[in-house]
């Protein structure tokens, strides 16, 4: 007996958002990243094929990180001492795009300087032609101080800039507006605040298709259920037609997973936890794949092997079944 598979159809759709300017558009990127455009829940290809697969970013820093797992530092080796080299290695590891996260201090512990931050971004742009997200270190004043000159110095490249939060978004949005960049809007796992921030940012005149929503999340075992539900709720609202939730979502999976005990600690843990490196990569991969299922369009990872595994999962999920 033939079985009729019920299909949902939705009133709304996620906005299509692109960034990264190629030579044709006045930049130096080798390609443009396009995400969003979903007309149904993730990977329900039998309803409406997903127009753009989720993409994978690798996170790099402007200098050797102080707080990254020794596993990551061993894997990357000496490239972490040079953002250009690191960018090149990350591109070779198969990333679709890069996220450069700026440090709060320099190697000697002194406050980060805008000139150094601009130089690091330029190095990355020269070394790799992938589209780029640049995130401030996460302290409002420093973020503004570093991101504004970067926005000016990279006009035309069409980057995504963060961190915009409810307490600090105006300066970065203005810098993005003036220099043809995008912004990422971050809210602390809260649907109301996510939406509110998007309204505030668009009120400043930045078109909604230049915003990537970062709803923040927790790693597997550390609040992922909550993060998952928030993203699912935002996506359902988007499909129901709520314009200020109709934005692609990014999640910083690497940041979250590599601070869990499971990924951070290799000694004095139960034997049943198994091999440390394998466990850490599993942690990052499973967190990423779960969040992709809840609607993430961009996942930011830290380990190259996680990139490979998440890529395989995306390819499987994107496969459109042959009609019977």
């Amino acid at each position: 007996m033939p079985i009729e598979i019920p299909k949902d159809s939705w009133a709304g759709e996620v906005r299509t958002v692109s960034f990264g300017a190629t030579a044709e558009n006045g930049g130096t990127r080798s390609k443009t990243i396009t995400v969003g455009g979903e007309k149904t829940l993730p990977f329900l290809q039998f309803e409406v094929p997903m127009p753009h697969p989720p993409v994978i970013a690798l996170e790099i820093k402007d200098r050797r990180p102080d707080d990254w797992s020794s596993l990551l530092l061993e894997t990357w080796g000496d490239v972490v001492d040079d953002p250009g080299e690191w960018a090149k290695a990350a591109e070779e590891a198969g990333a679709d795009l890069l996220q450069l996260t700026l440090s709060l201090t320099d190697n000697e512990g002194k406050p980060a300087k805008p000139d150094d931050a601009v130089a690091a971004v330029k190095k990355v742009l020269e070394a790799s032609a992938l589209p780029l997200i640049v995130m401030g270190p996460g302290q409002a004043e420093v973020d503004n101080e570093l991101i504004v000159p970067i926005a000016d110095a990279t006009k035309g490249e069409n980057l995504a800039l963060g961190i915009c939060e409810d307490k600090n978004y105006r300066t970065i949005v203005a810098a993005a507006l003036a220099n043809d960049h995008l912004v990422t809007s971050r809210a602390p796992m809260d649907v109301n605040l996510s939406k509110q921030l998007n309204i505030l940012i668009t009120d400043m005149g930045l078109p909604a298709d230049r915003i990537i929503m970062d709803p923040t999340t927790g790693a597997l075992g550390y609040g992922i259920e909550y993060g998952y539900s928030v993203m699912e709720r935002l996506r359902l609202a988007a499909l129901q037609g709520d314009a200020m939730t109709q934005l692609p979502m990014m999640v910083t999976v690497g940041t979250e997973t590599w601070k869990t005990k499971e990924a951070k600690v290799g000694e004095d843990v139960p034997e049943a936890w198994g091999d440390w490196l394998e466990r850490s990569i599993n942690w990052e991969t499973l967190t990423a794949v779960s969040l992709i299922e809840s609607g993430a369009d961009i996942v930011v990872l830290r380990h190259p092997e996680s990139v490979r595994r998440v890529r395989l999962a995306i390819e499987d999920l994107m496969a459109v079944p042959e009609p019977a």
Binding site: L193, K195, Q196, I199, D203, Q240, D242, M244, T245
Partner: peptide, 11 residues
Amino acid sequence: KVIYADAYLEQ
């Protein structure tokens, strides 16, 4: 039906 935000009236 629509997610609440402080600025919901402006949407």
